[in-house]
Design a protein around this nucleic acid. Structure first.
Lengths: 330, 330
DNA sequence: ATCAATCATGCAATCGGTTGCACGATCAAT
DNA sequence: ATTGATCGTGCAACCGATTGCATGATTGAT
């Protein structure tokens, strides 16, 4: 098989425990010995077997990122992949591996397996998985929720962007641009983040409240938008739950010959790469996904290392103003 | 610590090796004993330590998916995430973990580490990483390239979609719709898949060949498109290297008041979720990313298990015809 | 009834590291 | 010079599984 610590030890003329100590820098070793060991490692192209290492130390050296996706779309969710990128970056800097696992099909089994079979030292979970049953089996295993769990427990760590504030900001912006009747379009109402966005919308909306829920698809958003826009006194601006909803709305406006931003104003959540390339470019409530991922990973590592207290981090969103909400004249 | 195989053995009144055999179903065990062991496992909520298992068996039970991403965008590449979803699905069905790793910053080190430190049993690599130096260190370690490597070696396994055929199909379709002067827009020419798409374009293009390379951004595609469309006798149709290029082109057409599909025909590669929601909906060379991921993973597992011969899989693309190429009148 | 073949299970080595304890060597202080 | 503290390294147990070999029990054939 491959080169082991014993081969290195023999070549360097020391005991394997010494090699181990050199490897981990955990003890005082004579510079001379250290050099001989390094030389032997180099000569043999030694790579420590991480499995043996993990077994002995009781640490897998990996963290798990759980996704809750029934179909491929959720996986290719820009939000998810960008955060994942940041998570991987933080993990790599610490010499940790990132394991991704889809928790959708196996109610809790995936997560439990990762944990109890010692495959990971910590977990990043989606809010949808945080249910009492899981919390019981998870015990004091280190985990951080990426998003806000529906059932709040003070000892749960989570990192999220401030959806409520984001929606408030969107509505205020539209109001300032002179729109009178602002509606909320899109989003599956059972999802926590949608609820919070809607709440933000309700907090500051002044006119009639119109909330058009969808199943999350563009098609559905399109249909709802058409229905609304055909009414006698319809909304003159929309806060869209995501880019997909905004695209459905754009299509509806085109068909009904409503001009944006003159007749209809639009602000949408999430900054898709294409949002600024549609006609007109979309005003966006931008979520700092990189920061989200980074903070989540760092919080997790803090918990893994210190076991330390729980913490919740809420990141602010920012508004990227583009043509879709810039009414030229009142 | 946690429950071990010995605890189970003691409770069931057998030796730990018997428990192991029950666990793995590798030997004949009396139904009675088997039941006692299962009962003990259930009672103690036993979960085998995968680290110990891996060490003993020499198999990590994980595969690595390497990404070559400098920025978050490449990671959130729809192509990548959809394939990843399919890969994870296949892996989960076999009880394997999926480790993702960004190979961008550490020339080869990441891949070598995953391999030599026994963190994974096999690798899925992007074509960009397949260079002679890596091939030497990788030896006969199981790996499959997702995409076509630039430097072809007959013993390299890879899975890719047929980009050349896809481009040919796009051009032929535009020709049939009556477009005379078809250009190719977008794509960084050094990338293998872009080269192959351009080659397909060249194979069947009849009129003047116009190849407009970009740096991959929409902005750049927009600029190139504007430059082309301002010429005296400009192209009347474009095959776009991806959706981003198509979006740049759409913007250029809007500004120059060129109508699609009457004045300009468009076919683009990759079926982004938004492609059918722009105006007009885009005709697309569709890549079956799910199949791509699935085939890649399955090929990898075949190699891990049999060590078997090398194989190359080329998947066909299909054309999804929408309004952007359907010229109403000649 | 006898013997060989097969079955069920235990024993102990092994996978490749880590780490507490022990011990001789070195060093500083008196 | 003596003594106690500190340093550098080896020994061996241990992490929690797997697996080849051995053994006693059971089975079937003659």
């Amino acid at each position: 098989m491959a080169v082991t610590i014993h081969d290195v030890a023999k070549l360097a003329g020391v005991n394997s425990s010494t090699v181990s100590r050199v490897l981990n820098g955990k003890a005082t070793i004579t510079p001379d010995t250290k050099e001989r060991v390094y030389a032997a490692m180099r000569e043999l192209d030694y790579h420590p077997n991480s499995l043996a290492r993990s077994l002995a130390s009781g640490l897998s050296g990996a963290i798990g990122v759980v996704v809750d996706a029934r179909d491929a779309e959720a996986f290719s969710n820009v939000f998810f992949s960008r955060s994942l990128f940041a998570i991987e970056k933080v993990a790599q800097a610490r010499g940790y591996q990132v394991i991704i696992a889809n928790g959708a099909q196996s109610r809790g089994g995936t997560i439990e397996g990762l944990m109890k079979e010692h495959k990971v030292d910590g977990l990043i979970l989606p809010p949808t998985t945080v249910k009492p049953a899981l919390m019981k089996t998870i015990g004091d295993f280190p985990y951080v929720v990426l998003g806000t769990p529906d059932t709040l427990r003070s000892d749960t760590c989570w990192v999220d962007n401030n959806n409520e504030q984001g929606a408030e900001m969107a509505v205020r912006h539209l109001q300032k641009m002179g729109y009178q009747q602002i509606a909320y379009l899109g989003g599956y109402q059972k999802r926590g983040f949608t609820k919070r966005r809607v709440r933000g919308y309700q907090n500051v909306s002044s006119g009639k409240e119109t909330i058009l829920s969808t199943d999350g698809t563009s098609e559905n958003a399109y249909a709802e938008a058409v229905r609304e826009l055909k009414k006698e006194s319809h909304a003159d601006a929309f806060v869209c739950n995501d880019n997909l909803a905004a695209f459905g709305l754009l299509k509806a406006c085109r068909e009904l010959r409503l001009r944006i931003p003159d007749d209809i104003g639009i602000v949408a959540f999430d900054n898709y790469p294409l949002a600024e390339y549609v006609d007109p470019p979309l005003t966006i409530v931008d979520i700092d996904t990189a920061m989200l991922g980074e903070q989540t990973a760092q919080l997790l590592f803090r918990r893994i290392e210190n076991g330390g207290g729980s913490q919740q981090i809420m990141l602010s969103t920012s508004l990227v103003i583009r043509a879709s909400s810039e009414r030229r004249k009142k």
